[in-house]
């Protein structure tokens, strides 16, 4: 079973959370789950939009304190 890899993109303006996620998705294997940590409110909308367009899979979105935890599975 593939492990969940954390991508810590809290408090970053450049390259920013979605760019960080794309970086690590490129390096991940199909079936891997990545958990993006973000303090950017926009990530809750930006990430699902990109994931849907690419054909990956949203696993879940949760806000704990000030941090969004967005889980994505690489599908292709």
């Amino acid at each position: 079973m593939s492990e969940t890899k954390i991508v810590d993109a809290c408090n970053t303006y450049c390259p920013g959370p979605l760019m960080e996620l794309i970086t690590y998705m490129r390096q991940a294997d199909v079936g891997d789950t990545l958990e993006l940590l973000s303090t950017d409110q926009g990530s809750a909308d930006d990430v699902p939009e990109w994931v849907e367009k690419c054909g990956h899979e949203m696993v879940g979105t949760e806000k704990i304190g000030e941090i969004w935890h967005i889980k994505v599975r690489k599908a292709k």
């Binding site: 450049c14 390259p15 920013g16 979605l18 760019m19 794309i22 926009g42 990109w50």
Partner: peptide, 10 residues
């Protein structure tokens, strides 16, 4: 551009 605006810095 890779993300959903034309630069990573808003």
């Amino acid at each position: 551009y890779p993300i959903n605006r034309i630069h990573s810095i808003e």
